[in-house]
Design a protein around this nucleic acid. Structure first.
Length: 449
RNA sequence: GACCCUAUCGUCUAGUGGUUAGGACACCACCCUUUCACGGUGGCGGCCGGGGUUCGAAUCCCCGUAGGGUCGCCA
Protein backbone atom coordinates (compact mmCIF):
# COMPACT_ATOMS: atom_id res chain seq x y z
CA UNK A 1 0.00 0.00 0.00
CA UNK A 2 1.40 3.32 -1.07
CA UNK A 3 1.77 5.99 1.58
CA UNK A 4 -0.50 9.02 1.48
CA UNK A 5 0.02 11.74 4.08
CA UNK A 6 -1.44 15.19 4.36
CA UNK A 7 -0.95 18.58 5.89
CA UNK A 8 -4.31 20.09 6.77
CA UNK A 9 -3.92 23.63 8.08
CA UNK A 10 -6.67 26.05 8.89
CA UNK A 11 -6.11 29.30 7.02
CA UNK A 12 -5.77 31.79 9.83
CA UNK A 13 -3.48 34.17 7.96
CA UNK A 14 -0.56 32.76 9.84
CA UNK A 15 1.75 29.77 9.45
CA UNK A 16 2.97 28.60 12.82
CA UNK A 17 6.52 27.31 13.05
CA UNK A 18 5.13 24.15 14.63
CA UNK A 19 2.71 23.74 11.75
CA UNK A 20 5.57 24.22 9.33
CA UNK A 21 7.48 21.42 11.02
CA UNK A 22 4.41 19.18 10.91
CA UNK A 23 4.23 19.86 7.18
CA UNK A 24 7.94 19.15 6.87
CA UNK A 25 7.72 15.81 8.67
CA UNK A 26 4.78 14.79 6.50
CA UNK A 27 6.61 15.85 3.36
CA UNK A 28 9.80 14.07 4.37
CA UNK A 29 7.87 10.93 5.15
CA UNK A 30 6.14 11.03 1.78
CA UNK A 31 9.42 11.57 -0.05
CA UNK A 32 11.18 8.95 2.03
CA UNK A 33 8.57 6.31 1.30
CA UNK A 34 7.83 7.35 -2.27
CA UNK A 35 4.30 8.26 -1.23
CA UNK A 36 2.12 11.30 -1.83
CA UNK A 37 1.97 14.52 0.14
CA UNK A 38 -1.49 16.08 0.12
CA UNK A 39 -2.32 19.63 1.08
CA UNK A 40 -5.85 20.16 2.30
CA UNK A 41 -7.25 23.45 3.49
CA UNK A 42 -9.50 23.19 6.53
CA UNK A 43 -11.55 26.30 5.85
CA UNK A 44 -14.77 25.29 7.54
CA UNK A 45 -14.78 28.42 9.64
CA UNK A 46 -15.74 30.74 6.82
CA UNK A 47 -15.64 33.90 8.89
CA UNK A 48 -11.92 33.98 9.39
CA UNK A 49 -10.82 32.37 6.17
CA UNK A 50 -9.76 34.42 3.24
CA UNK A 51 -7.91 33.77 0.05
CA UNK A 52 -5.01 35.79 1.40
CA UNK A 53 -4.88 33.59 4.48
CA UNK A 54 -4.53 30.53 2.26
CA UNK A 55 -1.82 32.24 0.24
CA UNK A 56 0.17 32.68 3.45
CA UNK A 57 0.20 28.91 3.86
CA UNK A 58 0.98 28.17 0.23
CA UNK A 59 3.73 30.79 0.26
CA UNK A 60 5.25 29.43 3.43
CA UNK A 61 5.34 25.87 2.15
CA UNK A 62 6.74 26.96 -1.19
CA UNK A 63 9.43 29.00 0.53
CA UNK A 64 10.48 25.94 2.50
CA UNK A 65 10.46 23.90 -0.69
CA UNK A 66 7.72 21.53 0.45
CA UNK A 67 5.98 20.82 -2.84
CA UNK A 68 2.66 19.02 -2.50
CA UNK A 69 1.55 16.30 -4.88
CA UNK A 70 -2.13 17.09 -4.48
CA UNK A 71 -3.90 20.21 -3.34
CA UNK A 72 -4.66 23.79 -4.26
CA UNK A 73 -2.60 25.74 -6.77
CA UNK A 74 -3.92 29.10 -5.60
CA UNK A 75 -5.55 30.50 -2.50
CA UNK A 76 -8.95 30.52 -4.15
CA UNK A 77 -11.24 27.84 -2.76
CA UNK A 78 -12.91 27.31 -6.13
CA UNK A 79 -9.67 27.78 -8.00
CA UNK A 80 -7.42 25.25 -9.72
CA UNK A 81 -6.11 22.24 -7.82
CA UNK A 82 -4.03 19.24 -8.74
CA UNK A 83 -4.87 15.69 -7.73
CA UNK A 84 -7.78 13.31 -8.26
CA UNK A 85 -9.14 13.27 -4.73
CA UNK A 86 -10.39 16.83 -4.45
CA UNK A 87 -11.84 19.25 -3.77
CA UNK A 88 -8.99 20.13 -1.42
CA UNK A 89 -10.86 22.88 0.39
CA UNK A 90 -13.30 21.74 3.03
CA UNK A 91 -15.61 24.59 2.12
CA UNK A 92 -16.10 22.78 -1.21
CA UNK A 93 -16.81 19.38 0.28
CA UNK A 94 -20.14 20.05 1.92
CA UNK A 95 -22.02 17.19 0.21
CA UNK A 96 -19.44 14.66 1.36
CA UNK A 97 -20.05 15.58 4.96
CA UNK A 98 -23.82 15.65 4.58
CA UNK A 99 -23.79 12.22 2.95
CA UNK A 100 -21.63 10.80 5.71
CA UNK A 101 -23.74 12.32 8.46
CA UNK A 102 -26.88 10.90 6.87
CA UNK A 103 -25.26 7.48 6.87
CA UNK A 104 -24.49 7.75 10.56
CA UNK A 105 -27.97 9.02 11.37
CA UNK A 106 -29.67 6.26 9.39
CA UNK A 107 -27.76 3.63 11.34
CA UNK A 108 -28.39 5.38 14.66
CA UNK A 109 -24.66 5.95 15.15
CA UNK A 110 -25.47 9.63 15.50
CA UNK A 111 -28.57 11.51 16.56
CA UNK A 112 -30.08 14.95 16.39
CA UNK A 113 -30.13 16.97 19.54
CA UNK A 114 -31.34 20.59 19.83
CA UNK A 115 -30.61 21.11 16.16
CA UNK A 116 -27.10 19.74 16.25
CA UNK A 117 -25.98 16.24 15.34
CA UNK A 118 -24.14 14.26 17.98
CA UNK A 119 -22.05 11.15 17.51
CA UNK A 120 -22.52 8.14 19.76
CA UNK A 121 -19.05 7.75 21.18
CA UNK A 122 -17.92 4.43 22.54
CA UNK A 123 -17.91 4.16 26.33
CA UNK A 124 -14.95 1.81 26.27
CA UNK A 125 -11.31 2.88 26.51
CA UNK A 126 -9.76 3.27 23.06
CA UNK A 127 -6.42 1.68 22.21
CA UNK A 128 -4.22 3.83 19.99
CA UNK A 129 -1.22 2.21 18.32
CA UNK A 130 0.87 5.31 17.73
CA UNK A 131 3.93 4.94 15.50
CA UNK A 132 5.89 7.35 17.65
CA UNK A 133 4.34 7.31 21.10
CA UNK A 134 3.61 3.62 21.21
CA UNK A 135 0.47 2.02 22.59
CA UNK A 136 -1.84 4.45 24.33
CA UNK A 137 -4.92 3.38 26.24
CA UNK A 138 -7.20 6.39 26.27
CA UNK A 139 -9.82 6.32 29.03
CA UNK A 140 -12.74 8.69 29.29
CA UNK A 141 -12.21 11.79 31.38
CA UNK A 142 -14.68 12.48 34.14
CA UNK A 143 -16.57 14.96 31.99
CA UNK A 144 -16.71 12.52 29.12
CA UNK A 145 -17.89 9.75 31.43
CA UNK A 146 -21.01 11.82 32.10
CA UNK A 147 -21.65 12.30 28.38
CA UNK A 148 -19.12 10.88 25.93
CA UNK A 149 -21.06 11.84 22.81
CA UNK A 150 -19.86 14.86 20.87
CA UNK A 151 -21.20 17.26 18.29
CA UNK A 152 -20.30 16.56 14.66
CA UNK A 153 -22.65 19.08 13.06
CA UNK A 154 -23.47 22.37 14.71
CA UNK A 155 -27.03 23.59 14.96
CA UNK A 156 -26.26 26.09 12.19
CA UNK A 157 -25.50 23.16 9.90
CA UNK A 158 -21.73 23.56 9.89
CA UNK A 159 -19.81 20.31 10.29
CA UNK A 160 -17.27 20.20 13.08
CA UNK A 161 -13.51 19.54 12.87
CA UNK A 162 -13.59 15.96 14.15
CA UNK A 163 -16.08 14.97 11.49
CA UNK A 164 -14.61 16.75 8.49
CA UNK A 165 -11.08 15.73 9.37
CA UNK A 166 -12.03 12.06 9.48
CA UNK A 167 -14.28 12.14 6.42
CA UNK A 168 -11.59 13.83 4.36
CA UNK A 169 -8.81 11.55 5.53
CA UNK A 170 -11.04 8.60 4.70
CA UNK A 171 -12.11 9.82 1.26
CA UNK A 172 -8.65 11.05 0.33
CA UNK A 173 -7.16 7.68 1.20
CA UNK A 174 -4.79 9.01 3.84
CA UNK A 175 -2.71 6.13 5.21
CA UNK A 176 -0.67 7.92 7.88
CA UNK A 177 -1.78 10.83 10.01
CA UNK A 178 1.33 12.68 11.17
CA UNK A 179 0.27 15.57 13.37
CA UNK A 180 1.05 17.40 16.58
CA UNK A 181 0.78 15.62 19.90
CA UNK A 182 -1.95 18.05 20.88
CA UNK A 183 -4.23 15.77 18.85
CA UNK A 184 -3.28 12.57 20.62
CA UNK A 185 -6.24 12.40 22.94
CA UNK A 186 -8.60 13.49 20.15
CA UNK A 187 -7.50 10.42 18.26
CA UNK A 188 -9.88 8.22 20.22
CA UNK A 189 -12.78 10.15 18.75
CA UNK A 190 -11.35 9.99 15.28
CA UNK A 191 -10.81 6.25 15.47
CA UNK A 192 -14.36 5.75 16.69
CA UNK A 193 -15.60 7.77 13.74
CA UNK A 194 -13.59 5.70 11.27
CA UNK A 195 -15.05 2.53 12.74
CA UNK A 196 -18.53 3.95 12.53
CA UNK A 197 -17.91 4.47 8.81
CA UNK A 198 -16.90 0.84 8.63
CA UNK A 199 -13.24 1.32 7.76
CA UNK A 200 -9.99 0.80 9.59
CA UNK A 201 -8.42 4.05 10.83
CA UNK A 202 -5.16 5.22 9.29
CA UNK A 203 -1.91 4.80 11.16
CA UNK A 204 -1.22 7.60 13.59
CA UNK A 205 2.08 9.29 14.41
CA UNK A 206 1.93 12.11 16.94
CA UNK A 207 4.97 14.34 16.93
CA UNK A 208 6.08 16.36 19.96
CA UNK A 209 5.37 20.05 20.11
CA UNK A 210 7.69 23.02 19.78
CA UNK A 211 7.78 25.12 22.94
CA UNK A 212 9.06 28.61 23.66
CA UNK A 213 12.56 29.02 25.04
CA UNK A 214 11.09 29.19 28.55
CA UNK A 215 9.17 25.95 28.07
CA UNK A 216 5.75 27.50 27.74
CA UNK A 217 3.45 26.67 24.89
CA UNK A 218 4.35 28.51 21.73
CA UNK A 219 1.28 30.30 20.57
CA UNK A 220 0.57 32.63 17.73
CA UNK A 221 1.64 35.79 19.42
CA UNK A 222 4.95 34.54 20.72
CA UNK A 223 8.17 35.89 19.30
CA UNK A 224 9.38 33.68 16.49
CA UNK A 225 6.19 31.67 16.19
CA UNK A 226 5.50 32.80 12.64
CA UNK A 227 7.32 31.07 9.82
CA UNK A 228 7.04 34.22 7.75
CA UNK A 229 9.12 36.08 10.33
CA UNK A 230 12.13 33.98 9.38
CA UNK A 231 11.72 34.84 5.75
CA UNK A 232 11.46 38.51 6.65
CA UNK A 233 14.45 38.46 8.97
CA UNK A 234 16.64 37.01 6.29
CA UNK A 235 16.95 33.34 7.09
CA UNK A 236 17.46 30.85 4.30
CA UNK A 237 14.80 28.19 3.88
CA UNK A 238 17.49 25.50 3.77
CA UNK A 239 18.65 26.44 7.26
CA UNK A 240 15.12 26.67 8.63
CA UNK A 241 14.30 23.24 7.24
CA UNK A 242 17.50 21.78 8.64
CA UNK A 243 16.93 23.31 12.06
CA UNK A 244 13.26 22.34 12.23
CA UNK A 245 14.18 18.75 11.43
CA UNK A 246 16.45 18.57 14.42
CA UNK A 247 13.62 19.59 16.71
CA UNK A 248 12.05 16.29 17.61
CA UNK A 249 14.05 14.12 15.27
CA UNK A 250 17.65 13.02 15.31
CA UNK A 251 19.88 11.35 12.75
CA UNK A 252 21.56 9.82 15.82
CA UNK A 253 25.11 10.18 14.58
CA UNK A 254 25.96 13.67 15.86
CA UNK A 255 25.53 15.26 12.44
CA UNK A 256 23.92 18.68 12.49
CA UNK A 257 24.14 20.04 8.97
CA UNK A 258 22.06 17.87 6.70
CA UNK A 259 20.90 18.78 3.22
CA UNK A 260 17.41 17.94 2.07
CA UNK A 261 18.27 14.86 -0.04
CA UNK A 262 20.01 13.40 2.96
CA UNK A 263 17.10 14.27 5.21
CA UNK A 264 14.74 12.49 2.86
CA UNK A 265 16.94 9.44 2.84
CA UNK A 266 17.34 9.27 6.60
CA UNK A 267 14.07 10.57 8.00
CA UNK A 268 11.72 8.03 9.45
CA UNK A 269 9.01 7.94 12.09
CA UNK A 270 10.65 5.58 14.63
CA UNK A 271 13.46 8.08 15.21
CA UNK A 272 11.07 10.88 16.06
CA UNK A 273 11.49 11.84 19.71
CA UNK A 274 8.66 11.67 22.20
CA UNK A 275 9.33 14.79 24.22
CA UNK A 276 8.67 18.38 23.35
CA UNK A 277 11.52 20.61 22.24
CA UNK A 278 12.22 24.24 23.00
CA UNK A 279 12.92 26.60 20.17
CA UNK A 280 16.50 27.88 20.37
CA UNK A 281 16.96 30.94 18.19
CA UNK A 282 20.70 31.10 18.85
CA UNK A 283 21.19 27.69 17.29
CA UNK A 284 19.06 28.56 14.29
CA UNK A 285 21.18 31.68 13.83
CA UNK A 286 24.36 29.65 13.96
CA UNK A 287 22.98 27.15 11.50
CA UNK A 288 21.78 29.89 9.18
CA UNK A 289 25.27 31.34 9.25
CA UNK A 290 26.60 27.99 8.11
CA UNK A 291 24.26 28.05 5.13
CA UNK A 292 24.84 31.72 4.36
CA UNK A 293 28.58 31.15 4.25
CA UNK A 294 28.09 28.35 1.77
CA UNK A 295 26.00 30.47 -0.60
CA UNK A 296 27.27 31.40 -4.05
CA UNK A 297 28.31 35.03 -4.46
CA UNK A 298 25.35 35.71 -6.72
CA UNK A 299 22.75 34.31 -4.35
CA UNK A 300 24.44 36.06 -1.45
CA UNK A 301 24.25 39.43 -3.19
CA UNK A 302 20.68 38.83 -4.27
CA UNK A 303 19.52 38.06 -0.74
CA UNK A 304 21.41 41.07 0.61
CA UNK A 305 19.67 43.33 -1.88
CA UNK A 306 16.30 41.90 -0.82
CA UNK A 307 17.13 42.54 2.81
CA UNK A 308 18.05 46.13 2.06
CA UNK A 309 14.88 46.59 0.06
CA UNK A 310 12.78 45.26 2.94
CA UNK A 311 14.51 47.78 5.20
CA UNK A 312 13.68 50.58 2.80
CA UNK A 313 17.12 50.96 1.30
CA UNK A 314 17.12 50.99 -2.49
CA UNK A 315 20.54 49.77 -3.55
CA UNK A 316 19.58 50.29 -7.19
CA UNK A 317 20.35 53.97 -6.73
CA UNK A 318 24.00 52.95 -6.78
CA UNK A 319 26.02 51.58 -9.68
CA UNK A 320 25.76 47.83 -9.97
CA UNK A 321 29.51 47.34 -9.72
CA UNK A 322 29.59 49.39 -6.53
CA UNK A 323 26.80 47.36 -4.96
CA UNK A 324 28.46 44.09 -5.92
CA UNK A 325 31.82 45.17 -4.56
CA UNK A 326 30.23 46.44 -1.36
CA UNK A 327 28.29 43.25 -0.71
CA UNK A 328 31.26 41.08 -1.54
CA UNK A 329 33.09 42.54 1.45
CA UNK A 330 30.34 41.07 3.65
CA UNK A 331 30.65 37.51 2.41
CA UNK A 332 31.24 35.11 5.26
CA UNK A 333 30.41 37.68 7.90
CA UNK A 334 26.64 37.39 8.29
CA UNK A 335 24.42 34.94 10.09
CA UNK A 336 21.18 36.29 8.68
CA UNK A 337 20.48 38.71 5.88
CA UNK A 338 18.58 40.93 8.24
CA UNK A 339 21.97 41.75 9.73
CA UNK A 340 23.34 43.15 6.49
CA UNK A 341 21.39 46.38 6.88
CA UNK A 342 23.18 47.27 10.07
CA UNK A 343 26.44 45.72 8.95
CA UNK A 344 26.84 47.31 5.54
CA UNK A 345 24.32 50.13 5.59
CA UNK A 346 27.17 52.65 5.64
CA UNK A 347 27.87 51.88 1.98
CA UNK A 348 24.48 53.25 1.03
CA UNK A 349 23.94 56.01 3.58
CA UNK A 350 24.29 59.72 2.81
CA UNK A 351 25.45 60.54 6.30
CA UNK A 352 26.51 57.89 8.74
CA UNK A 353 25.73 57.88 12.44
CA UNK A 354 28.60 57.27 14.83
CA UNK A 355 28.37 54.73 17.60
CA UNK A 356 28.37 57.19 20.54
CA UNK A 357 30.43 55.05 22.88
CA UNK A 358 33.03 54.33 20.22
CA UNK A 359 33.18 57.99 19.18
CA UNK A 360 34.11 59.13 22.68
CA UNK A 361 36.85 56.54 22.71
CA UNK A 362 38.21 56.72 19.16
CA UNK A 363 37.65 60.39 18.33
CA UNK A 364 39.89 61.80 21.04
CA UNK A 365 41.78 64.90 19.83
CA UNK A 366 45.00 62.95 19.30
CA UNK A 367 43.12 60.38 17.23
CA UNK A 368 41.58 63.08 15.08
CA UNK A 369 45.00 64.57 14.56
CA UNK A 370 46.27 61.21 13.33
CA UNK A 371 43.23 60.90 11.13
CA UNK A 372 44.16 64.20 9.54
CA UNK A 373 47.58 62.77 8.67
CA UNK A 374 45.94 59.67 7.25
CA UNK A 375 43.62 61.83 5.20
CA UNK A 376 46.54 63.67 3.68
CA UNK A 377 48.28 60.43 2.81
CA UNK A 378 45.17 58.90 1.27
CA UNK A 379 44.33 62.04 -0.69
CA UNK A 380 47.68 61.81 -2.45
CA UNK A 381 47.56 58.10 -3.20
CA UNK A 382 48.05 57.20 -6.83
CA UNK A 383 45.90 54.11 -6.56
CA UNK A 384 43.03 53.60 -4.10
CA UNK A 385 43.27 49.81 -3.93
CA UNK A 386 43.12 47.81 -0.70
CA UNK A 387 46.80 46.86 -0.85
CA UNK A 388 47.94 50.44 -1.40
CA UNK A 389 45.57 51.66 1.32
CA UNK A 390 46.97 49.18 3.78
CA UNK A 391 50.55 50.16 2.92
CA UNK A 392 49.70 53.84 3.23
CA UNK A 393 48.01 53.42 6.59
CA UNK A 394 50.92 51.45 7.96
CA UNK A 395 53.37 54.02 6.63
CA UNK A 396 51.51 56.79 8.43
CA UNK A 397 51.43 54.70 11.59
CA UNK A 398 55.19 54.31 11.45
CA UNK A 399 55.65 58.03 10.85
CA UNK A 400 53.46 58.79 13.85
CA UNK A 401 55.13 56.14 15.95
CA UNK A 402 51.83 54.39 16.75
CA UNK A 403 50.46 50.93 16.15
CA UNK A 404 48.24 50.41 13.12
CA UNK A 405 45.27 49.97 15.42
CA UNK A 406 45.54 53.60 16.51
CA UNK A 407 44.60 54.55 12.96
CA UNK A 408 42.47 51.57 12.02
CA UNK A 409 39.85 52.03 14.70
CA UNK A 410 39.26 55.78 14.23
CA UNK A 411 39.29 55.35 10.45
CA UNK A 412 36.73 52.56 10.63
CA UNK A 413 34.51 54.63 12.88
CA UNK A 414 34.86 57.67 10.66
CA UNK A 415 33.93 55.76 7.51
CA UNK A 416 31.30 53.36 8.84
CA UNK A 417 30.16 54.79 12.16
CA UNK A 418 30.77 51.38 13.70
CA UNK A 419 33.41 49.36 15.49
CA UNK A 420 32.75 46.18 13.56
CA UNK A 421 32.36 45.61 9.87
CA UNK A 422 34.05 44.44 6.70
CA UNK A 423 37.81 44.52 6.22
CA UNK A 424 38.83 48.17 6.59
CA UNK A 425 41.11 48.36 3.55
CA UNK A 426 38.57 46.69 1.33
CA UNK A 427 35.71 48.84 2.48
CA UNK A 428 37.81 51.96 1.89
CA UNK A 429 38.54 50.80 -1.64
CA UNK A 430 34.87 50.17 -2.32
CA UNK A 431 33.78 53.47 -0.79
CA UNK A 432 36.27 55.24 -3.02
CA UNK A 433 38.52 58.20 -2.46
CA UNK A 434 35.82 60.84 -2.63
CA UNK A 435 33.55 59.32 0.02
CA UNK A 436 36.45 58.36 2.25
CA UNK A 437 37.97 61.85 2.25
CA UNK A 438 34.54 63.32 2.83
CA UNK A 439 33.93 61.06 5.82
CA UNK A 440 37.36 61.65 7.29
CA UNK A 441 36.77 65.38 7.02
CA UNK A 442 33.45 65.12 8.73
CA UNK A 443 34.95 63.08 11.56
CA UNK A 444 37.64 65.71 12.08
CA UNK A 445 35.02 68.18 13.21
CA UNK A 446 33.48 65.78 15.72
CA UNK A 447 33.05 67.20 19.22
CA UNK A 448 31.91 65.30 22.27
CA UNK A 449 28.90 66.71 24.07
C1' G B 1 -11.18 18.01 38.50
C1' A B 2 -10.32 13.75 35.03
C1' C B 3 -7.60 11.60 31.13
C1' C B 4 -3.11 11.30 27.95
C1' C B 5 2.13 12.22 26.83
C1' U B 6 7.01 13.42 28.49
C1' A B 7 11.60 13.94 31.75
C1' U B 8 20.24 13.31 30.02
C1' C B 9 24.58 19.85 30.48
C1' G B 10 21.08 26.64 30.00
C1' U B 11 19.14 24.66 24.83
C1' C B 12 18.94 20.67 20.82
C1' U B 13 20.44 15.75 21.35
C1' A B 14 23.64 10.55 21.45
C1' G B 15 23.02 6.70 24.84
C1' U B 16 18.65 1.24 25.08
C1' G B 17 22.05 -2.98 32.06
C1' G B 18 28.78 -2.42 32.69
C1' U B 19 30.86 4.47 28.80
C1' U B 20 36.15 8.76 32.24
C1' A B 21 27.87 9.85 30.16
C1' G B 22 29.59 11.66 23.68
C1' G B 23 28.39 15.77 20.11
C1' A B 24 26.29 20.61 18.67
C1' C B 25 24.56 25.68 20.01
C1' A B 26 25.26 29.22 23.83
C1' C B 27 28.84 30.92 27.53
C1' C B 28 34.20 31.72 29.37
C1' A B 29 39.67 31.78 28.33
C1' C B 30 43.57 31.66 24.90
C1' C B 31 45.43 31.53 19.68
C1' C B 32 44.76 33.59 14.68
C1' U B 33 43.65 38.69 13.11
C1' U B 34 43.03 45.80 10.78
C1' U B 35 37.45 45.35 13.63
C1' C B 36 33.77 41.73 13.50
C1' A B 37 32.85 37.02 11.92
C1' C B 38 35.16 32.40 10.58
C1' G B 39 38.71 28.81 12.17
C1' G B 40 41.81 26.37 16.14
C1' U B 41 42.78 24.85 21.38
C1' G B 42 41.02 24.42 26.22
C1' G B 43 37.22 25.12 29.97
C1' C B 44 32.40 25.43 32.55
C1' G B 45 28.13 22.42 32.62
C1' G B 46 23.72 17.07 32.85
C1' C B 47 21.20 11.67 33.94
C1' C B 48 14.21 15.61 38.31
C1' G B 49 13.49 13.09 43.47
C1' G B 50 12.55 8.57 46.23
C1' G B 51 11.93 3.49 46.39
C1' G B 52 12.66 -1.20 44.13
C1' U B 53 14.74 -5.33 40.32
C1' U B 54 19.96 -6.64 39.48
C1' C B 55 26.59 -8.52 40.90
C1' G B 56 25.79 -3.79 38.35
C1' A B 57 21.27 1.11 36.52
C1' A B 58 20.83 7.39 32.66
C1' U B 59 18.96 2.75 30.70
C1' C B 60 13.78 -1.94 33.53
C1' C B 61 9.38 -1.39 37.34
C1' C B 62 6.56 1.60 41.05
C1' C B 63 5.46 6.19 43.57
C1' G B 64 6.13 11.24 43.68
C1' U B 65 7.40 15.94 41.34
C1' A B 66 7.67 19.02 37.19
C1' G B 67 6.47 20.38 32.15
C1' G B 68 3.19 19.80 28.03
C1' G B 69 -1.48 18.26 25.90
C1' U B 70 -6.82 17.10 25.89
C1' C B 71 -11.77 16.92 27.90
C1' G B 72 -15.92 23.06 22.76
C1' C B 73 -22.00 23.72 18.60
C1' C B 74 -12.55 26.17 17.71
C1' A B 75 -9.31 23.88 14.37
Amino acid sequence: MSVRVRFAPSPTGFLHIGGARTALFNWLYARHTGGKFVLRIEDTDAARNTQEAVEVILGGLRWLGLAWDEGPLTGEATGPCKGERGPYFQSQRRENYERRVEALLSRDLAYRHEGAVRFRMTREPVLIEDLIVGEVRRELTDREAQDPDFVIVRSDGQPVFHLVNVVDDLEMGITHVIRGEDHLTNTARHMALFRAFGVAPPKYAHIPLILNADGSKMSKRDQGASLLAYLEEGYTPEAVVNYLCLLGWSPKDNREILAVPELIERFDLPQVLRHNARFDLAKLQWMNGEYVRALSADRFRELCVHAFARAGVDTNRFPLEYVKAALDTCQGKLRTFGEVVGYAGFYFAETIVYDPVAARKDFQPESLARLARLRAALAGLASFGAAELEAALKRVAVELGVKAGALVHPARLACTGQTAGPSLYHLLEVLGRERVIERLDRASSWRSD
